[in-house]
Write a protein that binds this DNA or RNA. Structure first.
Length: 145
DNA sequence: GCCAACGTTGGC
DNA sequence: GCCAACGTTGGC
């Protein structure tokens, strides 16, 4: 299983809206960046995804999983743009803020820190476990730790 | 609201 | 194929 992080501006698409979609999940559409799209092409069913609020909040607020692999983005006719579906799994008991992530030496190499403008990005398993721990979750079981 | 970083576009 | 101009993202 691989780990990822996706960003969304909460006033456009929030974690609450994502949760409201339930198990049906939701297309992660609107990505118009090749690097981000290429990462989505690598995603497999059941891969875990941090849901991060950008611009406002600046924190990891929950965990989702990939519920459909790569397919055309329904919001455009341009066949270059594809996306996956994700569905909400659990809230972060304690949202993990960007300042906390930056302050943690173990997370100094996170793409979130190193390449601020990439909206879909890989997360290493070590980073995954660490961020979950900071948020009060066991990174494997996703149960409160 | 500003601005740095970075990706894309288009002229040559 | 280079690079200047421009647009967008996202932290502050």
């Amino acid at each position: 299983m691989k780990y990822w992080l996706v960003k969304s501006e909460p006033f456009k698409w929030s974690w609450q809206m994502q949760k409201d979609m339930g198990d049906a999940g939701q297309e992660w559409d609107g990505v118009r960046n090749y690097q981000a799209r290429n990462f989505m092409r690598e995603m497999a069913l059941g891969d875990r995804v941090f849901f991060y609020h950008s611009n406002e909040g600046l924190e990891v607020v929950g965990i989702a999983e990939v519920s459909a692999t790569i397919h055309p983005d329904s919001t455009t006719d341009d066949e270059r743009w594809e996306c996956v579906d994700i569905r909400a799994l659990v809230d972060m008991p304690v949202p993990v803020g960007l300042p906390d992530i930056k302050a943690n030496p173990k997370l100094a190499e996170m793409v979130l820190v190193v390449n601020t403008r990439l909206s879909v990005q890989p997360v290493t398993s070590k980073e995954w476990m660490e961020v979950c721990k900071m948020g009060g979750l066991d990174g494997k079981t996703l149960k409160p730790a």
